[in-house]
Amino acid sequence: MSEKKTTNIILFSGDYDKAMAAYIIANGAAAYDHDVTIFHTFWGLNALRKDEQIPVQKGFVEKVFSKMMPRGADKMALSKMNFAGFGPKMIKGVIKKHNAMTLPQLVEMAQEQDIKLVACTMTMDLLGLQKEELLDGVEYAGVAAYLADAENGNVNLFI
């Protein structure tokens, strides 16, 4: 086992702002030389979706889920003041103004910093998401893999 400290974040939320917080902490922890894992489950999986439509075989309910959920980090909604999509437009303007990073940029930086992005396979099945629809380089695991990382972890967050 490595002597590095570890940060383990569960991203459950599919909200743009909450995912931003998760990814800022993750990127900061990587700069702290931690081994960092973000375990994406339920709505948090949408942060890992590719933004283009991927042709895959799906049942009816899964198709409906796919249509109704945001396809990728850039399309996620705000947890507050979403105003039917106008809120995210405003916040992206403010992010640009303050030279902060957008969620897709934070996800890209997380990959550059070797942060382990994990997709929960059980919730992928529930929401009808398939590997082909998620970003390349994502790892697939379940609760045991998360616990193995977290039981010796130094920072554990559920967002």
């Binding site: 800022i24 990127n27 900061g28 990587a30 700069a31 702290y32 303050h98 902060a100 990073m101 930086m109």
Partner: peptide, 8 residues
């Protein structure tokens, strides 16, 4: 640059 870029 805004947080977390300076420390990155």
């Amino acid at each position: 640059l805004a947080c977390p870029m300076p420390i990155v």
